[in-house]
Design a protein around this nucleic acid. Structure first.
Lengths: 135, 135
DNA sequence: TTAATATCGATAACTGTTATTATTATATGG
DNA sequence: CCATATAATAATAACAGTTATCGATATTAA
């Protein structure tokens, strides 16, 4: 049954995830939550991020930049990775359900879902031609 | 200028990539190419895979399964990751150019491209309900 | 053939993540 | 309110994938 117990650390990680639009990596979560709980361990951050994803309370994003990112918004939406500053932004567009049908056409198997990642430049980097990562 | 020199190892890696539909990881490439060049180093495999990607002669696929995969087919197409056997398969569907326009609508930045990864079950795993990875 | 240097093989180093373990915090029943 | 059981923690070791280093080797051009 594995009874779940509450912990301040997990709560803090969850609240940070739900209130940020940063799509943070585990290390970014660690940096933030350490401000409230200076003794928190990076292992605790990873363990709880995995826990939250398993519970469906967070989503893991694989953006191909070396480390996984986490998103407290679990409703389906798409992301853009900015080639200027490296940030990951939410895009306001409806779910592309029809592309599953397109993928299934002529394919003998089963399509269960998809992930889409757009790449390009965020509004700031489009305007300024900024090429540097944000600090 | 960095003059490029030919090497049997690189040639062998390139030929394997172009002739397989496996979407192999670096380690899978290493295993294969070692049959022809038993002394090849894993570092050489990584160096040349990166080289080929940089030259536009191969594509890197980030499938979120821990290691990068490589594809000798550089023309745009989409992939399915099978949740049964873990393989990555090509899908026969046309490029979804219109979704870049959808993403750009109401977004202040610039859309340069996208990647799509479908998840589901390959024909074999759909038929057999196989849950084990292929050997 | 020789000289210059790109590439190699071997291996160390690095990064992101997971596993281990003794200790601490949380929940529960008396 | 206290005792007990055990989930969660902090610290740290271990692990996997990848990159960097470096002396030796192979390729190219003169």
């Amino acid at each position: 049954m594995a009874a779940v117990k509450h912990s301040k650390q997990r709560q803090s990680i969850k609240e940070y995830l739900m209130n940020t639009k940063e799509h943070p990596t585990a290390d970014m979560v660690y940096t933030q939550v350490r401000k409230l709980y200076p003794n928190i361990s990076l292992g605790t951050v990873y363990r709880n991020l995995n826990f939250l994803v398993d519970q469906g309370e967070a989503t893991r994003l694989t953006c191909g930049d070396g480390s996984e990112r986490y998103d407290g918004t679990t409703s389906p939406h798409y992301h853009l990775v900015c080639s200027g500053c490296g940030r990951v932004l939410d895009l306001k567009m409806s779910p592309l359900d029809h592309i599953n049908t397109l993928a299934a056409a002529g394919f003998g198997g089963t399509i269960e879902g998809h992930t889409v990642l757009f790449h390009g430049r965020c509004p700031e980097c489009t305007d300024s031609s900024n090429l540097q990562p944000v600090s």
